[in-house]
């Protein structure tokens, strides 16, 4: 039976490694999103929203 091939020391360094990678990936990420993908979705969603709002603004005043 294969339980765990890694020593506790290896696991610690792996955890630290993945934490470091996670920290690098999350660097600069604003608190209201959990990933860069979400931030990009927010950006595209805002663009669509702006086009809709501009359209409504135009039709209202024209």
């Amino acid at each position: 039976m294969k339980i765990n091939e890694n020593s506790p020391q290896d696991m610690d360094s792996q955890d630290r490694g993945s934490q470091d990678l996670d920290a690098i990936d999350r660097d600069g990420l604003p608190p209201f999103v959990s990933s860069w993908k979400q931030l990009y979705q927010l950006l595209i969603g805002t663009l669509v929203l702006l086009i809709v709002l501009f359209y409504l603004f135009m039709t209202h005043f024209q």
Partner: peptide, 9 residues
């Protein structure tokens, strides 16, 4: 707007 200046879209 009525004079066509709010032609946003």
């Amino acid at each position: 707007g009525k004079m066509g200046k709010i032609n946003l879209i």
